[in-house]
Design a protein around this nucleic acid. Structure first.
Lengths: 222, 222
DNA sequence: TTTTTTCTTAATATTATTTTAAGTTTACTA
DNA sequence: TAGTAAACTTAAAATAATATTAAGAAAAAA
């Protein structure tokens, strides 16, 4: 992970670097113009930006970046503590704003939060087995460019089996989980669904991982 | 846009609501448990969370949510101003932390920044999918020179679906988000609206992206 | 107020999924 | 290796979910 510090005070920049260098690779830019140049590479996971700088101030830097469609998350770190400054910072497109003198810990956790959010690895909800991915958000089963279409309970069953891989799942467990233990349905449905599932899985060659344990149930394993 | 306030002090909750109600639909939860319940719907664009609450405190709420893969952005708003509290908040998965007494303006801009980042929506209120542009200001759906006219809730529904593309949205979520969960309306309206929406989308050939996931809800995807 | 638009309801039509059941195959046991 | 029990497969029937329509109610605009 790389963080860019745009700060004209070299001593302060060093201090900030000290705080975070355990966790991040740090680059410095010592004025706004240089900062923009660096940031345009779009290789940084976050930018720590000072406001009061010669030539080009922090607001200008930020506006320039956003106008150039550079959306790297920015944390403003400045001595300017008035509300109007903060508002101006956020309106220019900042993601966070911390006032000097700052606390090391707080800087670190704010930076982490920012990166965590902006990486967006938040929204994914995927179960994997080998190259097969079950996307729980879209309920799709995808293998490379192929996709197999599973109807509701088929998907539920595959999800259950894969998420319990290498463990025998009894038919009763499947039944209770997917149909509900007070369902009136005949037990045979499970076999019907296992069959349908295998048929679909065969299209991508993954039917071999769904094995029957006679007298007990099923297992998903290599 | 909907914001959830989780705060046991009703007067303060009202104050917060006053600050932001011009821009957001606001729901309240008056304790942590209720807050979790509400948040689990995943219909909020952000959550404003108090820490000191009976039964379940803010940290617990946040941990519960994140453990349940609910990644709605959270701004902690609390009187607890020590660094260790802040650190704890961020480590639990908060995205921002504001200390009471807070400034109205600051709350607003921080909330905006949070939503902007989490939605990845930096451009001026326009949502795009392929060549279709939804202008959230004029509430028009435009494709090249063509424009389709959508009535209020049709537009809301399309906006919701496209902004959550590739994720199944349950009918309940649509209902709660657009009609509000205490609405008396029959659930069938959603189907009626889906139908009407498809009819309009067909004019520009985009109806194929609105898919029904039987037994679950709808999804917008390729 | 009148007119227009949007929203809601409810009845009907359509479609997809689920279940049943009967025949077939497979695996185990005596 | 024949007999038996369990599991598999298939397709038709039953059921449940969704789509569509149109008419009436409510809300907004004129």
């Amino acid at each position: 992970m790389k963080v860019l510090i745009i700060e004209d005070d070299k001593i302060l920049a060093k201090t900030v670097e000290q705080c975070i260098k355990n966790k991040y690779d740090v680059d410095h830019a010592y004025d706004g113009e240089e900062g923009v140049l660096y940031a345009k590479q779009e290789i940084y996971d976050a930018i720590i930006l000072d406001i009061m700088m010669p030539i080009m101030n922090g607001y200008e830097v930020l506006n320039t970046l956003r106008n150039n469609k550079i959306y790297t998350p920015v944390l403003i770190l400045t001595a300017k503590d008035s509300i109007s400054d903060k508002v101006m910072g956020f309106r220019s497109g900042a993601d966070d704003y911390l006032v000097k003198p700052f606390n090391r810990e707080e800087l670190i956790v704010r930076l982490e939060a920012l990166i965590r959010r902006s990486q967006g690895n938040y929204t994914e909800n995927i179960i994997e087995f080998k190259d097969l991915k079950l996307d729980l958000n879209s309920r799709k089963a995808i293998l490379g460019k192929k996709e197999i279409i599973l109807q509701g309970k088929q998907f539920d069953m595959l999800e259950y089996l894969i998420s319990s891989k290498n463990t025998i799942i009894t038919k009763e467990q499947i039944f209770d989980k997917i149909w509900g233990f007070n369902s009136e349905t005949t037990a045979n449905v499970i076999e019907v669904y296992a069959s349908g599932l295998r048929k679909e899985l065969k299209k991508i060659g993954y039917d071999k991982y769904l094995k029957t344990i006679r007298g007990v149930g099923y297992i998903w394993s290599e």
